[in-house]
Design a protein around this nucleic acid. Structure first.
Lengths: 236, 236
DNA sequence: GGCCCGTTTTGCGCTACCGCAAACACCAGG
DNA sequence: CCTGGTGTTTGCGGTAGCGCAAAACGGGCC
């Protein structure tokens, strides 16, 4: 069982307000694992046997309808937890988690959760904050889907990704993992065709530079303006 | 300070696993208040000074954009908590809460929360479950908005309302509080016009009976079928 | 180097839904 | 009983974005 260095994770919100000893005790119950790009970590509907903390890489959580359509629930960045089905009282995973990049995760058995929470109440409080924040973000997303045009939604989505997982380059900000037009469509409630058209148009205006599963925001500020422009502000 | 009968609230999920003494201690910190129909309980952006438990009536939580557009985040039914901004680490309310019917609520000062959680860790665990469930529901809503047509979304929304707050009549299920076409539009990401057209059409097919801020599902089962019909199943 | 497969681009028609506007119904209050 | 106001209905364009189809692209693998 690989020993995890506590200093790597001590600063995470999940462990806020905990003593090093507590942290150590919690980490002792975890094992770590590596998932290679495009491998599934768990599947929607499967027994929620574990919960996870992403140490390295990127994970996409996606929800599928009975008819096979998908949406991206979120992208998980290093330091974030995922697969917390049990904390919310679900026996099965409500979504599928897939590594979009080679990724390293910490894994706890679901069965450890009640015990850990009892011993370290801060864990529940911290998780509550995290889940609460996600709930807020969901509401924001619903608000956007209800009130904004596709172009604005895509702008917001890209800005969020850049903030969460952007790599600063001298000529812009690159989204630091492979992401397709289809993925963006599934984040914003549109189709890959429409995303492609919009990104093409942005590219010709010099706002972005993009290629196969790769997007660089060249003019983040102009994209912010675009994102905030409401429907009836005139086009060029 | 009105004394609240513990037996009225003991069975609520929020207080699951608590001793009567604990419950009593928690309730001692609350006061109750009455809000009349169409009065605001708190406003989006205001200091989150309190959190609430609805005892009687119905409350609408709505989020407004800078440009004045609104969505309904959810309807609160008796027994549910709302205004939990602090539990999720927010200093201000992210939405506006308004009584849609004469309502009675329990009110705790936000400042009591950390103390209560420390003394009764089950409170955090229970709240985590609630918030987690709401997060799931949000994701479902996003999924619906992304993949379904307006008619299906309205069907789902009404069925959910009927389940949560339906009054059984001999000729159907009535939604047990005043709700306008506009409200439904704001729940489903459409316009009141479209909602009106669809309800009119349903009414002529005998699926619903509706009037001013009033909806009765006459044929719930047929509405379920409608809700599940996907886009390309042919129309009549 | 060449081949294959997943991704991206782009054109074209179509339609579900919006947006505006006007008429209408219902309830509360005087 | 009348009157004002809020909610609802309905008609009529207009259009943003979808859906389909086909072609171009690019990158990894043998």
């Amino acid at each position: 069982m690989a020993k995890v260095d506590t200093s790597l994770v001590a600063h995470l919100p999940l462990f806020a307000g905990m003593t090093p000893e507590a942290l150590d005790e919690i980490l002792r119950e975890a094992r770590s694992a590596r998932f290679s790009r495009n491998s599934a970590i768990f599947e929607q509907g499967a027994d929620a046997q574990s919960f996870f903390l992403l140490l390295h890489g990127h994970v996409r959580a996606a929800k599928t309808t009975p008819t096979g359509e998908q949406i991206v629930v979120r992208y998980v960045a290093p330091g974030e937890t995922f697969g917390l089905a049990m904390a919310i009282g679900a026996a099965r995973y409500p979504a599928t988690a897939m590594a979009v990049d080679d990724s390293v995760v910490l894994i706890w058995p679901t069965s450890a959760w009640p015990r850990l929470v009892e011993r370290f109440p801060a864990l529940a409080a911290n998780t509550l904050q995290t889940v609460g924040t996600r709930l807020q973000e969901s509401h924001t997303r619903i608000l956007e889907m209800s009130t904004q045009q596709v172009e604005q939604r895509i702008a917001h989505a890209l800005l969020r990704l850049a903030k969460q997982s952007g790599k600063k380059l001298d000529h812009g900000i690159e989204i630091d993992f492979p992401i397709s037009r289809q993925d963006i469509a599934q984040m914003t409630g549109t189709t890959l065709h429409t995303v492609s058209r919009i990104l093409s148009s942005w590219e010709s205006q010099g706002l972005v530079e993009s290629g196969r599963q790769r997007i660089i925001l060249r003019e983040p500020h102009k994209i912010v303006v675009l994102a905030e422009r409401n429907a009836d502000s005139g086009a060029a």
